Amino acid sequence: MNYIDCFLAPVPRANKAAYEELARISAKVVTEYGALNVIECWLDESGPDVSSYHGAETKQSQVEYGSFVAAAGARQGETVVLSYVEWPDKATRDAGMVKVTNDPRMQFGDQPPAFDGRRLIAAGFKPMQLGVRDA
């Protein structure tokens, strides 16, 4: 069964190009070590109102909803990046991530950081099998 690593990070808006470069390198490395897919998402701050995700009976006022910005702890001048890496299974993920974190291309110490990695929220997820297939 596939395994998914998810990441949520506050990133300074001014660092978008630097983050994209870091993401390109990271995607290349993780796929070399077994990842099937890498998705990086920059928050659409002009996107749909959160209430559009709820039925009429459950709609609340805008201020009552949580947000990715709040969850990520984004500060003034920052936005949110949501990323995920799909692996074929947890064993491949575990072996691959040991290699990823030790790969010299993933050591960015000589560059200014694109974001504060100490504020990164990350976790592994087991996909649910819902029986729904693409048409």
Rank of each mutant, 00 (worst) to 15 (best):
residue 2 N to Y: 07
residue 2 N to M: 14
residue 2 N to F: 10
residue 3 Y to P: 00
residue 6 C to M: 15
residue 6 C to K: 11
residue 6 C to D: 07
residue 7 F to D: 08
residue 7 F to W: 12
residue 8 L to F: 12
residue 9 A to V: 15
residue 9 A to T: 13
residue 10 P to C: 04
residue 10 P to I: 01
residue 11 V to Y: 08
residue 11 V to H: 06
residue 12 P to R: 04
residue 14 A to N: 09
residue 14 A to S: 14
residue 15 N to I: 08
residue 16 K to P: 08
residue 20 E to D: 15
residue 22 L to Y: 10
residue 24 R to T: 15
residue 24 R to W: 07
residue 25 I to Q: 05
residue 26 S to Y: 15
residue 26 S to L: 14
residue 26 S to V: 05
residue 29 V to L: 15
residue 32 E to V: 12
residue 33 Y to Q: 08
residue 35 A to S: 09
residue 36 L to C: 03
residue 36 L to F: 02
residue 36 L to M: 13
residue 37 N to M: 14
residue 37 N to H: 15
residue 38 V to T: 15
residue 38 V to S: 11
residue 38 V to E: 07
residue 39 I to S: 13
residue 39 I to C: 06
residue 41 C to F: 10
residue 41 C to W: 05
residue 45 E to G: 03
residue 47 G to L: 12
residue 48 P to N: 10
residue 49 D to T: 11
residue 50 V to N: 11
residue 51 S to M: 13
residue 52 S to P: 09
residue 54 H to Q: 11
residue 54 H to A: 13
residue 56 A to F: 12
residue 57 E to D: 14
residue 57 E to A: 14
residue 59 K to G: 02
residue 60 Q to C: 04
residue 62 Q to F: 09
residue 63 V to K: 13
residue 65 Y to A: 12
residue 65 Y to T: 03
residue 65 Y to S: 02
residue 67 S to T: 13
residue 67 S to Q: 05
residue 68 F to I: 10
residue 70 A to N: 11
residue 70 A to I: 08
residue 71 A to F: 08
residue 71 A to S: 13
residue 71 A to M: 11
residue 71 A to C: 08
residue 73 G to H: 04
residue 74 A to W: 06
residue 76 Q to A: 13
residue 76 Q to T: 08
residue 77 G to D: 01
residue 78 E to Y: 04
residue 78 E to D: 01
residue 80 V to G: 02
residue 81 V to A: 01
residue 82 L to I: 11
residue 82 L to T: 10
residue 83 S to T: 09
residue 84 Y to L: 10
residue 84 Y to Q: 07
residue 87 W to P: 00
residue 88 P to L: 03
residue 89 D to Y: 01
residue 90 K to Y: 05
residue 90 K to H: 08
residue 102 N to K: 11
residue 104 P to M: 04
residue 105 R to V: 06
residue 107 Q to F: 09
residue 109 G to C: 03
residue 110 D to I: 06
residue 111 Q to S: 07
residue 113 P to W: 02
residue 114 A to G: 01
residue 115 F to Q: 00
residue 117 G to H: 07
residue 117 G to V: 09
residue 119 R to N: 04
residue 121 I to M: 10
residue 123 A to E: 02
residue 124 G to P: 03
residue 124 G to Q: 02
residue 124 G to K: 05
residue 125 F to H: 09
residue 126 K to I: 13
residue 129 Q to F: 00
residue 129 Q to V: 00
residue 129 Q to E: 03
residue 130 L to G: 03
residue 130 L to Q: 01
residue 131 G to P: 00
residue 131 G to Q: 01
residue 131 G to T: 00
residue 131 G to C: 00
residue 132 V to E: 00
residue 133 R to S: 00
residue 133 R to Q: 01
residue 134 D to A: 04
residue 134 D to K: 01
residue 134 D to P: 02
residue 134 D to W: 00
